[in-house]
């Protein structure tokens, strides 16, 4: 009994640790005082100001557009690549998987500067495009690593059976293979989207002047002081995601298909 209570307190404390900063940000978004240091009473004015702040809305649009496009492209390219990787000989498969692991294992700062050097030598103009290319690059491994285990569990005979019964390869793939790997594809997409959304370091090195995502915008604001609208925006994002997740979890989940 005491042991169980101790365990519960431990888990509780860890969650306080993980969520305390988030609670702080939510509280700050309702703080009438402009400085973080003191509480000036409850207000909603930052939420109203947020929708008039074009800079922040533009950064939000960039962030979401990059995360969505990058994770979609990564999901398609990554899933198709998985089919190919499964059919490679052991040796080339090891090489390809080794390269796929590089962006996951390498430090973000090294990935960031290496892409920056590449874009400079290619003579690309730094901006939305370069950020997008970098994000696709670090998103693909997340998709491959979450689709791969699903692919390995597949019974290859089912796909062959579909072909024998007259299905074309594309029809057969979507009818037979895709439903089985879907959970892996979805969790890969979600992982890629989250990583892209939360990325700062790689964006920092591959962005150009004038184009900002939320992360880089916040970083430039650190020294001047963060605009309270930013707290309001992140509260809205967080609460939206929380509600979505609760809804998804309420829905009858297929227990076999864990992430």
């Amino acid at each position: 009994m005491i042991k169980n209570t101790a365990k519960k307190i431990y888990v509780f404390l860890i969650f306080v640790f993980l969520y305390a900063p988030i609670a702080t940000l939510i509280v700050l978004s309702f703080n009438a005082s402009k400085t973080r240091a003191k509480w000036g009473g409850f207000t909603l004015k930052w939420y109203i100001a947020l929708f008039k702040n074009d800079d922040i809305l533009q950064a939000l649009f960039n962030t979401l557009a990059i995360a969505l496009i990058a994770s979609l492209v990564a999901t398609v390219v990554g899933t198709i690549a998985c089919i190919a990787i499964m059919n490679l000989k052991k040796r080339s498969r090891t090489v390809v998987m080794g390269i796929t692991n590089i962006p996951m294992l390498n430090a973000d700062i090294v990935t960031g500067i290496s892409l920056m050097l590449l874009f400079i030598s290619m003579g690309l103009r730094f901006g939305f495009g370069t950020i997008l290319l970098s994000h696709i690059t670090f998103c693909i491994p997340y998709v491959i690593l979450s689709v791969m285990p699903r692919m390995k569990q597949l019974n290859p005979s089912t796909f062959e059976a579909a072909l024998d019964l007259g299905a074309g390869p594309i029809y057969g793939f979507f009818k037979v293979v895709f439903p089985d790997i879907l959970p892996g594809v979805l969790s890969g997409f979600l992982m890629a989207f989250t990583m892209s959304l939360d990325d700062f370091i790689i964006t920092h090195f591959t962005k150009g002047a004038g184009v900002d995502t939320l992360s880089t915008k916040i970083y430039t604001e650190v020294k001047k002081g963060i605009k309270p609208e930013m707290y309001a925006l992140s509260t809205i994002i967080f609460v939206t995601v929380l509600i979505l997740l609760l809804l998804v979890n309420k829905a009858p989940a297929d227990k076999k298909q864990e992430a």
């Binding site: 969650f15 993980l18 969520y19 305390a20 900063p21 988030i22 702080t24 940000l25 700050l28 973080r36 240091a37 989250t194 990583m195 959304l197 939360d198 700062f200 939320l214 992360s215 916040i218 970083y219 650190v222 963060i226 930013m230 707290y231 992140s234 994002i237 967080f238 995601v241 929380l242 997740l245 979890n249």
Partner: peptide, 21 residues
């Protein structure tokens, strides 16, 4: 999800919140 959820609040803001704390 419980562990990934905080990532939806920007990493820089979350770290900055520790300043306030």
């Amino acid at each position: 999800l419980i562990f990934i959820l905080p990532m939806w609040m920007n990493f820089l803001l979350r770290t900055l919140a520790w300043q306030t704390l």
